[in-house]
Simulated assay, not measured.
Amino acid sequence: MVEVADTPELRATGLMFRKNLAADAGMLFLYPDRKKISMWMKNTLISLDMLFLDRDGTILHMAEHTTPHSTAVVSSRFRVKAVLEVVAGTADRLGLRIGDRAEHDLLPADQ
């Protein structure tokens, strides 16, 4: 179950100030166009795995076990369409790798 952040306001707030996140939950940040994304963990209380996704949900880059409250930039490294944030350790737990695909109705496979 993921929440969708598809407006500038929702993307700006993201998962800030949340004290916990269920193992099967997350937030999908959707952008109107593919572009390089820079994120940070300021005001984010829990460590996250960030999955940087192409239009069809293919994982192009991952930033695992991000540091809460950090203002260090976490870069997508590539032009992406979306970022999926999940609780830290999820990528390891699920065995996720670059090239795997996250599925969501808003990331159609036929793009």
Rank of each mutant, 00 (worst) to 15 (best):
R18I: 09
L30W: 04
V83T: 00
V80N: 04
D49M: 09
L107F: 06
E85V: 01
R34S: 15
Q111G: 11
E64G: 09
P32N: 14
L10C: 01
D6Q: 12
H61K: 14
E9D: 09
E9H: 06
K42L: 13
M16G: 07
V4Q: 06
D24L: 08
D92G: 07
K19N: 14
A109C: 07
R11F: 04
L28E: 03
P108Y: 03
I98M: 13
V86D: 05
D54T: 01
R11K: 09
L51V: 02
D6L: 09
E85M: 07
L107I: 00
G99P: 04
I37D: 03
R101T: 07
M39P: 01
T67L: 14
D54W: 10
T44Q: 10
L15P: 00
L45D: 06
A82E: 02
E9Y: 08
T13H: 12
M1D: 07
E103K: 12
V4N: 05
I37A: 08
M27L: 11
F17D: 13
M41K: 03
K42A: 15
G57W: 00
D100V: 03
L60T: 00
R18W: 10
P108E: 04
T90S: 15
M16A: 11
G89S: 12
L106Y: 05
V83K: 00
S47C: 11
G89F: 06
L15N: 02
V80F: 05
K81G: 05
D105T: 06
L28K: 00
M62Q: 05
Q111Y: 11
L107R: 03
A25C: 09
N43K: 10
H69T: 05
D56H: 08
L45R: 14
S70G: 11
N43E: 13
M39A: 06
V73F: 06
L107G: 05
K81W: 08
A91K: 05
